[in-house]
Write a protein that binds this DNA or RNA. Structure first.
Lengths: 162, 162
DNA sequence: ATCCCTGCAAACGCTTTGCACATGA
DNA sequence: TCATGTGCAAAGCGTTTGCAGGGAT
């Protein structure tokens, strides 16, 4: 199938120099993950990973789907969903449920732990980090004898000055 | 419609003495909210509010729907959705998006501000409260000149000792 | 040559919507 | 009366699934 041959050398996104360097690392991380899990190294998986790491914002499935469509590489939504599951498992992307609607994702490597402030009156998401969150987690882990595997924290805010 | 007459005196739930007292207050809160908004005081709205305040845990729409069905009072899901919107607006219930699936709700009056620890290996949700959350909010409000209207914080945890 | 992965479309599950009828004010 | 609320069923929408064919190993 000729389409596949295209995909093999797909350059879905032009990467900046920094992204170029990161890409090598991330690609290798996916490779070793797939080998460890005995999963196939399909061109789709690398293409999707690369597309994600070329984005600097949060995105949803449809965003990604349209990106591929524009670039003339058709990747089905089913595959995107599947692949994101794999990348999630590999720790290379993070999934968010900002609103009540669809899920949002973001790359998670070279992108340290942070939480989000959702700006309600504009289409903007601010990332922040505060050590007190980890402190709270640690305290409750000890107090309740539990292990907190993950957390989700969102602040929903509006601009104050007008 | 005879069904309505039943609803008017509906006792969907047997309330404990404490709940009985709270019920008076909550009912009045709904009443004044509806009057303020020029919305109708329908028996369904009071029945749903009462049912919610008789529950001590988090619930979803279907839970509520089945509760009414069991008790022989049919209230349509559309009405439940509508009414929850009203109660949300009145500040009498809170909406949560725990997993990726459907929304969960809980009564929010007589039920002070708290966050949740979702126990992953059992069907349990632990409520907790920590003043540091408010401190963080306040700090970011000042630092970014924003007003944080609400937040959602969930810890996903497992029991440590086995 | 396997059998996993992809693509397509249909199914799914929660939520929303449209419309006719009922009802609170 | 009459605008609003309710009930029912259909539509929406993001996500998942089933299956047939393709491709990685």
């Amino acid at each position: 199938m000729s389409k596949k041959h295209h995909l093999a050398k797909i350059e879905i996104a032009d990467l900046s120099e920094e992204q170029q360097q990161n890409w090598q690392q991330v690609r290798d991380l996916l490779t070793s993950h797939l080998e460890r899990k005995n999963q196939r190294k399909t061109p789709e998986r690398y293409a999707i990973l690369k597309a994600i790491y070329s984005l600097d914002e949060h995105f949803d499935i449809d965003h990604l789907y349209k990106l591929f469509k524009e670039k003339q590489f058709s990747v089905s939504k089913a595959t995107i969903y599947n692949t994101l599951e794999v990348l999630l498992d590999a720790g290379l992307v993070k999934k968010h449920q900002f609103g009540q609607v669809q899920a949002y994702y973001e790359k998670s490597f070279f992108n340290s732990n942070h939480d989000h402030i959702i700006m309600l009156d504009e289409e903007k998401i601010v990332e922040f980090c505060d050590p007190r969150i980890e402190a709270i987690k640690k305290d409750f882990e000890e107090a309740l004898d539990i292990e907190i595997e993950s957390h989700s924290l969102y602040f929903y805010a509006k601009k104050k000055s007008k």
